[in-house]
């Protein structure tokens, strides 16, 4: 590896030396920043600005000069509902169904995730044998790809799959899991918790291990019951970590797409269609390609994400300051 790098770096050294003579070492910093800023500029900042142009123009053309200006029409269409609680009364019912699905999805997913990763972290924090092994077991799904995770569970849940075989064996009726809207949604949440739980367990475990030992020793002196120790010491001292976990899980929950799309394709019907999938379908998979609606929807998602990230930064800073 080094043998490959060295000649390359030596070649780059020639123009860089010339630039250094020309600009001086201080302004050379910009040369070091340039490739990164180029990529950031073209593929992150420019898209953010262009997104507003797409959101305020109509038609299915991709080139901006071909798109007529329509003002806030796209947002108006998205928000045009008689009742936000009932997607059927909305002009664009698929979008609102996706919003409802996403809301339910993140509430349930984050809830289960926090509870189960908390239990797992508490147990892994005990004096147990083979702790490293058990920690790895809960963590390893994080490394898998979303498509692989989706297929692993699809294989178990398919009509003639392992789960139905077990139910059959125990004498229960079998279910066609992914063709039932309720079950497909429930399994989507389960799959997502299964997939990401290890990551949050790891963060909570680090939080638990940061609690000073002597607090527990003092509690043991007072012969406090385990439940009381948990409620009065562990939980309050772990609260900052819990909040970070919740906000992180919310941010990722809003952006969920890959594993659910590969798992159910958003179906049956639109039972498991989430907001990002709505954007993807409008812009890229189904004709006509309504880029304006997709962009408008993605701006609404971005607003939610920016708000959540701001909360996250605020909390991390507050935690850091004590």
């Amino acid at each position: 590896m080094l043998k490959l790098i060295t000649p390359f770096m030596q070649i780059v050294d020639v123009p860089m030396r010339a630039l250094q003579g020309l600009l001086g070492p201080r302004r050379l910093a910009w040369v070091f920043l340039l490739p990164n800023l180029f990529v950031f500029g073209f593929f992150t900042f420019l898209p953010v600005i262009l997104n507003f142009f797409y959101a305020t123009t109509g038609s299915d053309h991709i080139l901006l000069q071909d798109r007529p200006f329509v003002g806030m029409t796209n947002f108006g269409q998205l928000m045009n509902c008689q009742s936000y609680l009932d997607p059927n009364t909305c002009q664009i019912d698929v979008f609102w169904r996706a919003v409802h699905n996403t809301l339910w999805f993140i509430v349930l997913q984050v809830g289960f995730m926090v509870v189960f990763s908390m239990i797992t972290a508490l147990i892994l924090n005990r004096k147990i044998r083979a702790r490293g092994f058990f920690r790895a077991v809960f963590f390893f799904p994080v490394l898998l790809s979303p498509v692989v995770v989706a297929l692993v569970w699809k294989w178990i849940l398919q009509d003639q799959g392992a789960l139905n075989a077990v139910l059959d064996y125990l004498g229960y009726p079998t279910v066609n899991w992914l063709l039932s809207p309720t079950w497909a949604f429930a399994w989507s949440i389960f799959l997502s918790v299964w997939f990401h739980m290890g990551f949050y367990t790891l963060i909570l475990l680090a939080g638990l291990q940061a609690i000073p030992r002597d607090v527990y020793e003092a509690a043991a002196m007072d012969a406090a019951s385990p439940w009381r120790v948990f409620r009065k010491i562990t939980l309050p001292l772990l609260m900052p970590t819990m909040v970070v976990v919740m906000v992180l899980a919310l941010i990722k929950g809003v952006q969920t797409f890959d594993e659910i799309y590969a798992f159910t394709g958003g179906g049956p019907g639109s039972a498991t269609t989430l907001v990002i999938q709505y954007i993807y379908q409008n812009g890229f998979s189904a004709a006509p390609r309504l880029f304006g609606l997709a962009s408008a929807a993605s701006i609404l998602v971005a607003i939610v994400l920016v708000a959540l990230t701001a909360v996250q930064l605020w909390i991390t800073r507050r935690n850091a300051n004590g």
Binding site: P47, I49, L50, Y54, L63, Y280, G283, F291, S298
Partner: peptide, 22 residues
């Protein structure tokens, strides 16, 4: 600016990103 990009995941700029890459 770099901190700012942390808030913008690629999932919310798909349409313009497609145009630019194109």
């Amino acid at each position: 600016l770099i901190i700012g990009t942390l808030m913008i995941p690629p999932t919310v700029v798909l349409v313009p990103l497609f145009l630019i890459v194109r």
